[in-house]
């Protein structure tokens, strides 16, 4: 392990103050939000008395520091609190919704990488050709088409007009039952259960929303691949490699692409975290029970526990993601861990 192992450990330790900071900030920010959850949840016809009752049940009549200590002690026991708007423990909500979002986002990213990375490489090796123009067109379209619009257009064409896509009713059509829960990822769970039919149904439901998201994420990845490849190809070591008479494939994939991958992986990480939080609109259009719409609804209703739980889980996810990206660096770039720290 040595240097690499130590560097990884340092990364993990560095995450602890970050997460504590996130806990404090999310706690304060949710309280600073305008709106009074007691009023919100007492219902439209509530009287002052019933609002006060609700406030006491929620523990919101206590001073803030006391609320914070209570929150911390709950957290220490792994209890994220109870969401008021869904009436379930936040942990249960997150456990059912996070996999839905992750599955969608991962499939979309995979799809988008499969298209954008080769496209970026081709565009960089043949600048000005039709591939380069196609890349430019896709990048522009991806950036300029809002996801909810792409989603509705895809539904209109493939579901409404052609009738080849399944009803846009979330993760599974109602004639199917959720596969027995192992990971919460329907594709994995149904595969584990050996249920091909449900697997296929879940995949069919995934295609349209994943395409919508893929189109959106395609742009930054393709653009970054193209730019990174261009700069790598014009680097001195490529010239040396060419001069040394290495084969074109070896130069392109052995040296240029490997060096170009670093910024691409960084972009991928950024796109992933961004999309996970920002796919609310896709979730709404496809009735996808994901984490984005959960967070937005919780925010609108001043549902403190749910918002804090969401922020915390996202923070954890980001820390994890950064770690994974760092580890990916160490695979791509052997210098990792020796220079820094």
């Amino acid at each position: 392990m040595g240097a690499r192992g130590r560097a990884t450990l340092v990364r993990v330790l560095q995450a602890i103050p970050v997460i504590f900071g996130v806990i404090v900030i999310s706690f304060i920010l949710t309280r600073a939000l305008p709106g009074d959850p007691a009023v919100q949840f007492a219902g439209a016809m509530a009287t002052d008395e019933s609002i006060q009752q609700v406030r006491e049940t929620l523990g919101l009549d206590k001073p803030l520091p006391q609320q914070f200590v209570l929150y911390l002690s709950q957290l220490a026991q792994g209890d994220l609190g109870q969401s008021l708007s869904t009436g379930r423990p936040v942990l249960t909500d997150l456990a059912s919704r996070l996999p839905a979002s992750l599955e969608l986002t991962l499939v979309a990213l995979l799809l988008s990488c499969l298209v954008s990375v080769p496209l970026g490489v081709l565009a960089a090796t043949r600048p000005g050709s039709w591939v380069d123009q196609l890349c430019r067109l896709l990048v522009t379209a991806g950036v300029s088409l809002p996801t909810f619009f792409t989603g509705v257009v895809l539904i209109y064409i493939f579901y409404y007009l052609l009738g080849i896509a399944p009803s846009p009713l979330g993760r599974l059509d109602f004639v199917y039952l959720d596969p027995p829960r192992v990971t919460g990822f329907f594709l994995i769970d149904s595969a584990l259960a050996g249920d091909g039919e449900t697997w296929f149904a879940a995949l069919r439901q995934l295609i349209l929303p994943a395409c919508t998201l893929a189109l959106f994420t395609l742009a930054p990845i393709a653009r970054m691949t193209r730019a990174a490849m261009l700069s790598a190809l014009s680097a001195d070591y490529i010239r040396t490699a060419r001069a040394a008479g290495l084969t074109r494939g070896k130069i392109l994939y052995g040296y240029a692409f490997r060096n170009a991958l670093l910024p691409v992986v960084t972009t991928l990480g950024m796109v992933f975290s961004f999309v996970l939080g920002a796919n609310v609109l896709v979730e709404k259009v496809f009735a996808w029970p994901g984490i984005g719409s959960y967070a937005v609804e919780a925010l609108v209703a001043s549902d403190y526990a749910a918002v804090q739980g969401f922020v915390l889980s996202m923070a954890l996810l980001f820390v994890l993601l950064n770690l994974v990206i760092d580890l990916a660096y160490s695979v791509i770039d052997p210098r990792f861990g020796t220079a820094a720290k």
Binding site: V152, I155, Y159, Y160, G163, S167, P168, L169, S293
Partner: peptide
């Protein structure tokens, strides 16, 4: 009776027009 939650009005409309709901 299955009551499905579909937040988007456009999606609801596509579903009812197709007769799937």
């Amino acid at each position: 009776v299955i009551m499905r939650e579909v937040p988007s009005a456009a999606t609801q409309r596509a579903l009812i027009e197709r007769g799937d709901v």
